[in-house]
Computed example of a mutant assay.
Amino acid sequence: MPAIGLEDLVDRKKTLPAVAVFILLTGLFSCGPYYLLLEQGLQRYYISGLMWCPGLAALLTCKLMGFPLSVLGWKWGLARWQCMAFGLPILYGLCAYAFIWAGGFAGVLNPRYINEAGAHLGLMGWSTEAVLVLSIFVFGGLAMVWRISNALGEEIGWRGLLVPMLMRRFSFSVTSFIIGLLWALWHAPLIFYTSYNAGPYGLEWQFLNFSILLVSMSFIMTYLRLKSGSLWTAAVFHAAHNAYVLSLLEPMSTKYESSWRYIGEFGLVLPFVTAVFALFFWYKARRDGFSDPLN
């Protein structure tokens, strides 16, 4: 049985209207940050502002619909779920990049990454091994604090609000798919109109791969949200993905001319590997009784 007491927090008749209100508010709130990102480029502060739009939309939706904020899942929950949320992105990221490196789709260690990381951390003249270890500790460990603060903004909406709303109406599979698709569509302007992609070629293909990745992640994150009763599992998972997969594994890989087709969030391998993980959690969800809507 799920750890989240949906029947005590959510009036089933209000769930779909709440989803509609949330989508509308998220779109409205995102207009400002998106305008700045499209005009000024991928500036860190504008990205942070965009990432908090779903969270603000979720909070206002709760206010407008008369839901208590506890529906969002603020409690921390059992530590094992947070540990799983932290470790899973690292695991599927390592599996994906091990395949990429072994298949020759990209090189194992990019010298440019070592030089830039060394300069950024003030480690010029240090050995490659020392720079690599310290960069993993800083970019993957210490940076998690900042990344969780950003990821929380999104996850208050995607997993905090939408999971309890949609699970009152739909099965685990439908809920996970809807949230993953909405999540991907929300990123579409970034992919098609900014440099948040693998380059200005095959953007439709890149968006398809990215959508498969986010839908697959949605299955895993929805399961963790339901089992833990905590939106923090989603925030930790999201932050760990960004820290280890995007900021470490991808930039430390040496890219070849055709690497864009295989590596990163827009290539083929990572979405495929994550989909395999998602299939496992889909099976676990069925075994745990999430096949039907929660009453």
Rank of each mutant, 00 (worst) to 15 (best):
V108P: 15
F280Q: 09
S291A: 15
E155I: 11
V215F: 02
G118D: 03
P2R: 07
G49W: 00
T26I: 06
A235N: 08
Y201F: 14
F22T: 02
V21F: 10
Y283Q: 10
M51Q: 13
L249C: 11
G73W: 01
K255Y: 08
L231Q: 08
R286I: 11
L123W: 09
W81I: 00
P164T: 00
I179W: 02
F67E: 02
W158H: 03
P54R: 03
A96Q: 04
H187I: 05
S176K: 01
L36F: 10
Y113D: 07
L59Y: 04
E7P: 01
I212L: 15
G160S: 02
N150V: 09
G87N: 11
A20T: 14
L9I: 07
M167N: 05
A20V: 15
S247G: 06
L109R: 08
G229S: 06
Y113T: 07
L203N: 09
L25T: 02
M252S: 12
C62E: 00
V236D: 04
I136N: 10
H238A: 08
F219L: 02
L162T: 01
L121S: 07
A151V: 07
T175I: 03
Y45G: 11
I179D: 03
Y46P: 00
F237E: 04
L208E: 01
Y92A: 08
P54H: 04
F272G: 12
D11C: 10
M1N: 11
A235T: 06
V236E: 08
L208P: 01
A239H: 05
E39D: 13
C95I: 15
T274Y: 10
K13H: 12
V163N: 02
P293N: 05
C53F: 03
S30W: 03
F67M: 08
L91N: 06
F105H: 15
L162P: 15
I191Q: 05
F266T: 03
M124I: 13
S48R: 08
V163F: 03
E39L: 07
I178E: 01
V131Y: 08
L88H: 04
T274W: 08
S173H: 10
Y262V: 00
L224W: 05
F266I: 04
S173F: 07
L6S: 05
T128E: 15
F177M: 13
P251C: 13
G125W: 11
T274M: 06
G125I: 09
Q40E: 14
L72I: 10
W183I: 02
I148T: 09
L203R: 09
T128N: 14
G55K: 08
M217A: 12
Y283T: 11
I178F: 11
G27Y: 06
V236T: 10
Y45E: 13
L249M: 15
S173W: 07
P33Q: 08
M165C: 13
L214S: 05
Y196N: 14
G41N: 08
L24N: 04
F67A: 01
L78Q: 14
F67I: 04
G49D: 00
N242K: 11
N115Q: 15
S127I: 07
G49Y: 05
D8T: 14
A98R: 00
A98Y: 09
F137C: 13
A235W: 04
S253D: 07
G157T: 02
G122R: 07
N150A: 10
A240N: 10
R147Q: 13
F280K: 11
M144T: 06
P54E: 00
F266A: 04
S216V: 04
L72S: 06
G41Q: 07
